[in-house]
Design a protein around this nucleic acid. Sequence first.
DNA 1: GTGCATTGAATGCACATGCATGTAGTCTCC
DNA 2: GGAGACTACATGCATGTGCATTCAATGCAC
Lengths: 130, 130
Amino acid sequence: MSAPTDPELVEAWRTLLARQAATACALDRELNERHGLGMSEFEVLERLVEGTSGDCAASLRVQELATSVHLSQSALSRLIARLEKAGLVERSMCPEDRRGVSVCLTPAGRDRHTDAVPTHRSVLAEMLTG
Amino acid sequence: MSAPTDPELVEAWRTLLARQAATACALDRELNERHGLGMSEFEVLERLVEGTSGDCAASLRVQELATSVHLSQSALSRLIARLEKAGLVERSMCPEDRRGVSVCLTPAGRDRHTDAVPTHRSVLAEMLTG
DNA sequence: GTGCATTGAATGCACATGCATGTAGTCTCC
DNA sequence: GGAGACTACATGCATGTGCATTCAATGCAC
């Protein structure tokens, strides 16, 4: 495969941007209307659900989450504060490194995520196919 | 082609999001450091350059620009105000519809865009190939 | 152990964004 | 031509974001 030309690059970038913008916008709107969640909030909940092993509530560090949702450390800190205020997650001191903060889902958080998954998937299906 | 499964959709979305975030972030940083432009600012300048026919400075309406940069009308209005303050574009009243505002490049705006193009393309080449 | 650099997270601040609204110009129907 | 709906853009306001800074805890050198 030869190197793409500049116009090809620009076209690819615009397409990528357009898809991302449209999808993110739709996702944000639907999740907000139907479940009171922003897109990034949902992503964080989802990571926590995925990180859960067995019954033990997921406990991830703030920093681990930051990279996977493409947010700065400070933005994530506040996002988690919002989720905590809403009763969806809990922050607790990390036992082995007391600088760290473990974030874990509450039952309410798990429920909210479960409720929102169908919305999330259906928006993706609609925007990402075709 | 069969309908994608949910995990496929989610994976596709995450990939899209990751590429977009990484590229946008790199683009913003480089353009800002080297040319004092944000990503969207550059996009607007680029649309104006593209819209130019012959010598006649491009004059696009605010609304036309908004859709192509995935910004709300209000955000774009302010973005143009910033560009105008920086001397890169000029707003003038649209003669045939006096509600409308024609945005046109100044020579300085054209130069700034020309300077920034190599940076833009090289970031795209780096982030979007592979 | 003490001092110092480093790391994890929270916070002050500036700024860009979106929504709702305001304002001016245009169009339509009578 | 005049009233009212509509359109294009600007602006007030609330919010989310990133950068720089701060504070606490850890690790390392000695």
